[in-house]
């Protein structure tokens, strides 16, 4: 869509729980729109952000939309580099099997290294 003439490594850092605040939902909107720019996109989930990918989310009692199925669509947008921080999952009692999409699990040290290799970090 947009002819920028260069490709940057852009990491979306998702740190917040999916509900309670709007950060997760609006972050996902950025990722979906941003896909049109054909950049080298990375998605990182850490801290409470790991809950965004939890299977079987039920938001009926909250009265807000369960937007978690949208993460399954990321593949269609060519967003395939999806990472979850190991330590964040562990302290929350989660494993990769609890998540709605396949992810690559990275240690805190690896996450830090990846971040230093990015051109752009957008934090949500």
């Amino acid at each position: 869509m947009e002819e920028a003439g260069e490709t940057k490594k852009i990491m979306y850092v998702n740190r917040k729980a999916p509900y309670g605040t709007i950060y997760a939902l609006e972050a996902l909107e950025v990722v979906l729109i941003g896909a049109a720019f054909e950049q080298d996109v990375y998605m990182m989930f850490l801290d409470d952000g790991v809950f965004q990918l939890k299977k079987e989310q039920d938001t009926k009692a909250l009265g807000v939309k369960n937007f978690s199925p949208t993460y399954r669509a990321l593949e269609m947008y060519d967003v395939e580099k999806i990472y979850v921080e190991k330590e964040s999952m562990e302290v929350r009692g989660l494993t990769a099997d609890d998540l709605i999409i396949p992810v690559e699990v990275k240690s805190n040290e690896e996450v830090t290294k990846m971040m230093t290799e990015m051109d752009v970090l957008l934090n949500f």
């Binding site: 947009e2 920028a4 260069e6 720019f37 752009v120």
Partner: peptide
Amino acid sequence: GLGQLLEASI
């Protein structure tokens, strides 16, 4: 639109 954010990032 959000494209303006991406364009600025690039």
